[in-house]
Amino acid sequence: MKRVTMADVAKEAGVSKSTVSQYLNQRYEFMGEKTKKRIEEAIGKLGYQPNMVARSLKQKSSTTIGVIVANISHEFSTRIIQAIEAQFHQADYHVIVCNAEDKPEKEKKYIDMLLAKQVDGLIIFPTSTNVNVYNELNLQDFPLVFLDRSVPEVDVPTIMLDNKQAACLAVQELYQKGYEMLGILTNSTEYNVTPRVERIEGFKQACRKYGLPVQEKFIQGVALENMTEKIHSIMIGEDPPDALVAGNDLVLMEILTYARDHHLRIPEDLAIIGIDDISFASIYNPAITTIAQPVEKMGHKAATLLISKIAKQKQTQDEIVRFPATLISRSSC
């Protein structure tokens, strides 16, 4: 089939191509309602679809942004993407979501691909090791926002949870419930991923604050595939912990699975608190006490920050914006 062009729309509506172009770009200042109506009807009748690539080349804008998620397996990731997409939809932007699977080389490929597609900006959950790539984007003044993780070597606006405060809330709750031997498990800290490192540090600080022993053998950053083995070695050792903090939702799943498989009663044999209020926490038996992130607010902030950078509006906020966590007390401790 022959592609319907702007010239075809102009001919059908009885106007010039420039008038159709003004209509498509929503420049209605000097356009009468009857003219707008004729163009709208012509577009509908002919089934005209604007060539978005050609328009983006001409206007130097694709009205598209890219979101590169470190690991989309986390419920936090999918929920915050929904919040980001909703905000960009309101602003008439399209969103392309890519999953780096915590692999720096995959993240780099996605950055290259999205730049080739001429996205107007990027929101990245950084894997942390592509420092040269991030700094190159900065040098080119490319609109960029980090989410969930910071990279100290890169000066980019960053939206994060107050991770130390989140871990402190968990320790405080366990301390007030009378637990003394505490541990925290999170994913591997090999690449110094910010939430993992900060939650462990916040956990240690809170234990010292409340006079609880800091048991390094119960404080572990472990690759997820080795998590069951690590939990087992902790739980069968001498004087095992009476409470564990799960550093994120995937770790919580591993702990709950281990407890079920080894017939551990929650909280009688092992108290549990999870950082991230995952969807099943309230209906699990027993219901899981969690530390919730303000996901919608964080996604909204990241999107509005990027829109401001795309519009080259002056940035007045701090480089790192941290949101406080909230304790949701249930029955697992």
Rank of each mutant, 00 (worst) to 15 (best):
D8R: 07
A10F: 00
S16I: 04
S21R: 06
S21A: 13
Q22D: 05
Y23V: 06
E29L: 10
F30Y: 13
E41G: 00
I43N: 09
N51A: 04
N51T: 13
V53M: 14
R55M: 01
K58Y: 14
I65H: 05
S73V: 12
S73C: 11
E75I: 14
E85A: 11
E85T: 09
V95D: 07
V97Q: 00
C98T: 04
C98P: 08
E101S: 08
E101G: 06
D102K: 07
P104W: 07
E105N: 14
E107Q: 13
A116V: 03
S128Q: 15
D141W: 02
F142W: 03
F142K: 06
F142S: 09
R149K: 13
S150I: 02
S150N: 08
D162V: 04
D162P: 01
D162I: 10
Q165P: 04
A170M: 06
A170E: 09
G183C: 05
T194M: 08
R199Q: 01
C207K: 11
Y210W: 15
L212Y: 06
P213M: 09
E225W: 08
E225G: 03
M235T: 12
L244C: 08
L250F: 01
Y258P: 08
R260E: 13
L264C: 12
L270A: 09
A271P: 04
I275C: 12
D277N: 15
A281T: 10
A281G: 02
A281P: 02
I288S: 00
A302G: 04
L306C: 12
Q313E: 15
R322N: 12
